[in-house]
């Protein structure tokens, strides 16, 4: 009963909420009205936008000294998570069968384990930093903690079901993914998409004003 609910209606509901929510939020950002800049442009907008989109992957030297821990742990976590989501063999098989109709080479088992370990390492350290650093503790909201916990639970349930032998473990992982998808558009997890328009907007504005960033 519960398994057919998780594999059926709840799965489609969570997918609907995820896609509709992401489209609505991105649409509201992209099509939001803002003041027209009447100043004379000192430079082109597009190169500035593109430059900022990629240059922001490298932290500013002066700033890096003070945020080494967050930057390194952040990269460790995000790269690990990216590899786990898009290069784990069961995920590729799932995406191929249910969504895309094509596949790509998966990580070997040991590669998946290393990626998952890196993701766990980064996530736990970053979350602990959020709680322990007096500044981050003040800045963090309940939503940030829920996002971290949900991501941890999704990762954990997925890794616990690695053997792919027990339906109950697979269902647990799928259920946690569904909760994650439903929560995603309403939380700071949206940064997975919003970082692009945010950087483009800032970069374009800098480009127009002749600022190299």
């Amino acid at each position: 009963m519960i398994d057919s609910f998780i594999d059926g209606p709840l799965w489609y509901f969570s997918l609907f909420i995820f896609f509709a929510g992401v489209i609505l939020r991105l649409g509201s950002i992209i099509f939001s009205k803002h003041k027209v800049d009447l100043s004379v442009a000192k430079g082109p907008e597009t190169p500035g936008a593109l430059r900022t989109l990629f240059s922001r992957f490298i932290p500013d030297k002066g700033l890096f000294k003070h945020i080494k821990f967050q930057v390194i742990a952040g990269y460790v976590f995000h790269l690990g998570l990216f590899a786990v989501i898009f290069f784990a063999a069961p995920h590729i098989k799932f995406l191929d069968k249910h969504f895309l109709g094509f596949s790509w080479p998966a990580l070997p088992h040991w590669g998946f384990l290393v990626a998952a370990q890196l993701a766990f390492l980064g996530l736990i350290l970053l979350w602990l930093h959020r709680i322990m650093s007096p500044v981050s503790r003040l800045l963090s909201t309940k939503g940030d903690h829920i996002s971290s916990i949900l991501t941890f639970v999704v990762l954990l349930t997925g890794c616990l079901a690695l053997l792919e032998s027990f339906s109950s473990l697979r269902l647990l992982h799928r259920f946690s993914v569904e909760l994650f998808l439903i929560y995603f558009p309403f939380s700071s997890l949206m940064h997975a998409f919003t970082f692009v328009p945010s950087r483009i907007f800032t970069g374009a504005w800098f480009g127009r004003r002749g600022i190299k960033s």
Binding site: Q117, F120, I124, C159, L160, L169
Partner: peptide
């Protein structure tokens, strides 16, 4: 117990190396 044992084994093996860190 079977899924609990399987999950414990996978989790234990996966998180183990983090103890070194």
């Amino acid at each position: 117990f079977s899924p609990i044992a399987s999950a414990s084994k996978e989790g234990h093996n996966l998180m183990g190396p983090l103890l070194v860190v």
